[in-house]
Amino acid sequence: MSDLKNRLHEELAIKNACQVEGINADPAIFEGAGLGDKYQEQIQTLFDYNLHNHTGVVLPVCFYTPGGLRVGYRWNDRSPYKLRREGNQFILYHERKELFPVTLKKRPKYYSLKTSDGANMNQVATHNGEGAIFVSYSNECFLKETGHDCKYCNINYTHDTYGEEHGVSWKYPRQIGETAAVAYQEGAKHITISGGFIPERREIDYYFDVAEAIQEHTGLQDFNGTAVIGAPLDLGILERYKDAGYRTIAMNLEIWDKHIFNSVCPGKVIHCGGWEHWVKALERAAVVFGHGRVRSNFVGGMETKKSTLEGVKYLASQGVIAYAGSWIPNLGSEYEGHRSPLPEWHLDVAYKIVDIFRSAGFTYEQLYDSSASADGIWNDIYKIEEERLPVFKGEPSAV
């Protein structure tokens, strides 16, 4: 068993590197491979993590390693990690060295269905694997109008570049409820609702309407939903989100160093009370929702490793699960063309974060419930060490 775990940790290091560096592949290799039919295609939701414009180009959402680790596909033709098609098989290489064959993710059945008003369900809620679905209800971020966008963010660029034909459009509560109902019938068990920055009062009303629609169409009072919101100025509002039916809540602080935060996230300073208030909101949310039922996110690589880990450790001590996803200098953001730290930097952070999580008593189930997807590096470390992957039972990966 230790040999298997060692191999999976090696695959995890490759996965991490692919997430940081991206994947180098000619999009033509996917022609005739069944993307958008047999295998799941990318749908634009919130941000675009590819490093090239792909209007009119169909790309896979992810692929799986032989051990069953899910690797998100981020196109970068300068990456040393290359995907090649050999017959009907896709093979991952590092430079000229063959690493292993990979498997594309099967397309969910609901991706071919429409809501009662004619919206494509695959553009209402994307499937992030292991029963996690994600709704980007809008790429409307009013920070653009004030010139206070977060500097690493390309949410408005994604909206302007890809538009409604790629699924970047407003999602109505009924559409979400109908799509969630079908997805849950197919095995989904967690839904995240997220979107761009909108005025606080409008945000509250919308999230409540969405919760009500999901409950109505799924028949579930507890639908295991995560509401991703801006830190409310009135902290008493947090209890109303729980009363509405959300099991978990997320407020992404992004940066622990308050001076960098003030510079990089000016809109969150102006409209959400600043760094101190954001931390207070997370602390209060943990009281309302409970230990391990609140999530925050850091942009891994935007500040020093020491600072990020200090933030993760402090928030964990308050019952808040804080991740540090690898920073991708997105197209259209003010940091386009910059460089994220090396893959080894990000992998070391991930293992150290898991040590903090374990010390805080966070379970895998809590990580799953608070995440938009179950494929974070920290999730994978839990799955390897706790033998949760299908490969441990001799079963094929659930792709």
Rank of each mutant, 00 (worst) to 15 (best):
K306M: 08
W256L: 07
V168Y: 04
A28G: 06
P329F: 06
P199F: 01
G376E: 03
E239T: 02
A227M: 00
K383W: 00
L8Q: 05
Y364V: 09
D209I: 02
V354I: 05
E385P: 06
L12K: 00
Y368C: 11
D149R: 13
W378S: 06
D26P: 04
S296M: 00
K189D: 13
A125I: 13
W378N: 06
W256Y: 10
G36W: 03
I353E: 03
K114A: 07
D37K: 14
M302F: 08
R284A: 09
S370M: 13
K38C: 11
F142K: 10
G131A: 06
E140S: 14
A250R: 01
Y64H: 06
P390R: 04
K82Y: 06
Y64W: 12
R358T: 06
A244N: 04
A28M: 04
Y206F: 14
I328Q: 01
V135G: 02
S359V: 15
Y152P: 11
A33F: 12
G245N: 03
T45M: 15
I14H: 09
Q175T: 05
E31Y: 07
E145Y: 15
C272M: 13
E310S: 11
G67E: 00
K151Y: 08
D369W: 02
R85V: 08
R70E: 11
N156C: 10
H190D: 12
